[in-house]
Design a protein around this nucleic acid. Structure first.
Length: 424
RNA sequence: GGAGAGAUGGCCGAGUGGACGAAGGCGUUCGCCUGCUAAGCGAAUGUAGGGUCAUAAGCUCUACCGAGGGUUCGAAUCCCUCUCUCUCCGCCA
């Protein structure tokens, strides 16, 4: 959520930013409501002030027996007037709020201007494409061939876009989760947190999934939502709280399954582990000081990259352009891992700085020891990494001609296994 | 699921219709004192939204005692609804 004051005072900047995003928002309505709101508040506050003065007078003169019936009558009608103005104020605020909630974040000045993913900027890449003396298979073929991935039974038990991991498939999924959590806690200084996998409406609103993207979410019959990413429960840990400035940045890491409706992606990535309704993810979240949140973004991206390096997977880092940026984000780096079977790079992590966009919705603040005022934190997060896609990348990049899959060096201690064969 | 108790500032805790943004204590900050530390003394110490204004400071007004409504000239205090927490019983991984 943007600040109404920012919008009011930097109207041209906001307009240009939204145009760059390809978002057409008519701000005139908002400014009208804003002016109306302020004049109503003025009127109501004046009346309230009068009412308070009068109440004080009654309290003082109560014992003197002075008859104030006429004034009381006047106050009665004034109170009614106040009530009706307050109702009006609330209506205006609701209208404004509903409007502001639909306005995306302003991209950072370093973000390339562009229309869609074609205009994204490749920042760097690491490692090299593995060479195969045979035609590499898709991860779903490898997984089903080894009997470790089972899409058919998942469809029977639940439905399309789910998977069942058997044996070494389950073991490797678990090993990847543990590797990521261990690296981020022990080497990157993150604190691990395990949260509920369902959250309430307020939490979804603070991080920006609601009200605009409800059709992307699974909801329960008591108005809880299954988390689409750990970003939601973890960022909301400090909702309505004030952190100490010296504790920033707060670095957290959290494993959760993620649940997504994937509405509107019919026919896209229908096979394999790429686009499921439920997948595992280890998420990095930071609460940062505004003055250095872009340094934090670089660090956090590096921490996610570290996992790919340890796994020996070739990847590249892409800076999303204004047109491809997520709703709440001011700047995003995607990490794209090389998938040899399809010969494409697939997003495996998305690292974003939301600046104070989420913090304003969630009232997440910090305060310096000497400072009088509290300020909004900046919030950041990034996948570190998406586990299912990591498993897919390992299967494809480490496959052998006979259909078996070598276990990456770094996973061996976790799996106590060198090679995945049909019987493992 | 049944029965009861509760929700007040960073924390503890008083307050049952007016002088209460809220006693007292703890904590924190600043100052004094002090071989050092501790203790002691003094002062300050919530958030948000308006107005003035330079998007400053200051001044000023308003709102906020779990949330939302109601009664009243006036509500932390009385009434209603909801949410959450705790205790006991039952059930359960």
């Amino acid at each position: 959520m943007l600040d109404i004051k920012t919008i009011r005072q930097n109207i041209d900047l906001v307009k240009r930013a939204l145009e760059n995003r390809g978002s057409s928002v008519e701000l005139g309505f908002l400014l009208d409501q804003d002016a109306k709101r302020r004049s109503l508040i003025q009127e109501a506050d004046e009346l309230k002030s009068k009412r308070n003065q009068f109440s004080n007078r009654i309290a003082k003169e109560k014992s003197s027996g002075v008859d104030l019936e006429a004034e009381k009558n006047e106050m009665r009608s004034m109170s009614d007037r106040i009530k009706s103005i307050d109702v009006e104020i609330r209506e205006v605020e609701e209208a404004m709020n509903g409007f502001i909630m639909e306005i995306p974040n302003i991209p950072h000045e370093s973000v390339p201007v562009g229309r869609d993913s074609g205009d994204n900027q490749i920042v760097r890449s690491w490692g090299e494409k593995p060479e195969f003396s045979f035609t590499p298979k898709d991860h779903w073929d490898i997984g089903e061939g080894l009997g470790i991935l089972d899409f058919k039974r998942a469809a029977k038990v639940t439905g399309a876009r789910f998977v069942i991991n058997w044996g070494a498939g389950a073991l490797m999924e678990r090993a990847i989760v543990n590797l990521m959590l261990d690296v981020h806690t022990r080497e990157h200084g993150c604190r691990e947190v395990l949260t509920p996998f369902m959250v309430n409406r307020e939490s979804m609103t603070a991080t920006g999934q609601l009200p605009k993207f409800e059709e992307e979410l699974f909801a329960t019959n008591n108005d809880y939502f299954l988390v689409p990413t750990a970003e939601v429960p973890v960022t909301n840990l400090y909702r309505s709280e004030t952190l100490n400035e010296e504790d920033l940045p707060v670095k957290l890491v959290s494993y959760t399954p993620c649940f997504r409706r994937e509405a509107g992606s019919y026919g896209k990535d229908t096979r394999g582990l790429i686009r499921l309704h439920q997948f595992n993810k280890v998420e990095l979240v930071r609460f940062a000081h505004p003055s250095r949140s872009y340094t934090d973004l670089e660090e956090l991206t590096g921490e996610a990259e570290d996992i790919l390096k340890k796994l020996g997977l070739h990847y590249r880092v892409v800076c999303l352009c204004t047109g491809d940026l997520g709703f709440s984000s001011a700047k995003t780096y995607d990490l794209e891992v090389w998938m040899p079977a399809q010969g494409v790079y697939r997003e495996i992590s998305s690292c974003s700085n939301f600046e104070d966009f989420q913090a304003r919705r969630g009232q997440i603040r910090y305060k310096a020891k000497q400072a009088k005022k509290t300020e909004l934190c900046h919030t950041l997060n990034g996948s570190g990494l998406a586990v299912g896609r990591t498993l897919a990348a390992v299967l494809e990049n480490y496959q052998k001609e006979d259909g078996t899959v070598m276990v990456p060096e770094v996973l061996k201690p976790y799996m106590k296994l060198d090679l995945i064969t049909p019987i493992s």
